[in-house]
Amino acid sequence: MSPSNNNNKNELPRLGFLGLGWIGLNRMQAMLAENACQVAAIADPSAEMRERAAQAAPGAVALSSLDELLLQDLDGVVIATPSALHAQQSLAALWRGLAVFCQKPLARTAGENQAIIDAARQADRLLGCDLSYRHTEAMRRIRNAVVEGELGSVYAVDLLFHNAYGPDKSWARDPALAGGGCAIDLGIHLVDLALWTLGFPEVTNVSSRLYAQGQQLPAGSAQVEDYAVAQFDLANGCVVRMACSWNLPFGRDAAIEAHFHGTRGGAAMTNVNGSFYDFAAARFQGTQHIPLADPPDAWGGRAAVDWARRLAGGARYDKSIETLVQVATVLDRVYGR
């Protein structure tokens, strides 16, 4: 069958879901809960995963591979597979004429990101990536404060994402498959949040140190890092500092923070009580603390729902996705490649 490429704004897009682990299933359930799509097909090599997903989407065709999925009558594909597969799978779907929403990272390097974006532009199909922290109410409020000039000129940004746990999949600790360790897994969100909030200014310099079990790693190491610290300088004079880690003894499940320091005040997003899901935001004027957002906030599936709704409205290629190349370029420089 050929892709349906539905342009009827009154009909929900027919989507195929590739990769039905926790993230893939969560994004599918979020789209269904918001009535943002029709789940036409689900695909995963694991029969157990397919059976679990079928409970949420009983009318979907259950398949085991991307090749089978691409034979279905679809408008788009949602990809939540290991990172090494993202580029190949995204390209295959775009060449088929399908819109794509992919888990982060879209690809392992800036070059791979550029190839996917070029394919989306050529196919004129909507391409999205699940940079989900942009969609927290906390970060939305902070970005608005920066854009509206409430902080004055932002001259420094401090970011951290420390995860007391680490990935339980072996591929995530193989640099050839994952593209790196905690920096590409967690740091990608930090780099994106800083650049997105500040309007994607030019990055002029990047320095970093990567560690595995306390030992500093050389560039191109066959080991992935479990601790990364980096600094990047922006053309507008702002300095951005970030740190991220897996399995760090930090006294709580996670520490996820983004602090923006400006000439007229500051603002910060912080996770609450070590939570991976609950975030608060506040502005600062000297010692004054002005709340901007507090939990609860059901933000996890917002990026996916937003993409599906834009697709339902007939959206084609959106050049805003091109900023992913800048984020990936910063990460390439963090890794010294």
Rank of each mutant, 00 (worst) to 15 (best):
S2P: 12
N10R: 11
I23W: 07
L25A: 12
N26M: 13
A54M: 12
A57P: 10
D67C: 03
L70H: 07
L74R: 03
D75I: 06
V77M: 04
V78W: 00
V78E: 01
P82A: 04
S83P: 04
L85N: 12
Q89G: 05
S90A: 15
A92Y: 07
A93I: 04
R96V: 06
T109W: 03
V147T: 06
V147L: 02
G149E: 09
E150K: 15
E150Q: 15
D158S: 13
A164I: 08
K169C: 07
R173H: 13
A176Y: 09
L193N: 00
L195S: 01
L195T: 00
L198R: 01
V203Y: 06
L210M: 10
A212Q: 13
G214L: 02
P218F: 01
A222N: 10
V224L: 05
F232A: 02
M242K: 01
R252A: 12
D253P: 14
N271L: 07
V272C: 12
N273A: 15
S275N: 11
F276D: 06
D278S: 13
A281W: 03
Q288R: 14
D294A: 15
D297E: 09
A298S: 12
A304M: 13
V305D: 08
R316P: 06
S320P: 06
V330I: 02
L331V: 09
L331M: 14
D332F: 03
V334E: 00
R337N: 09
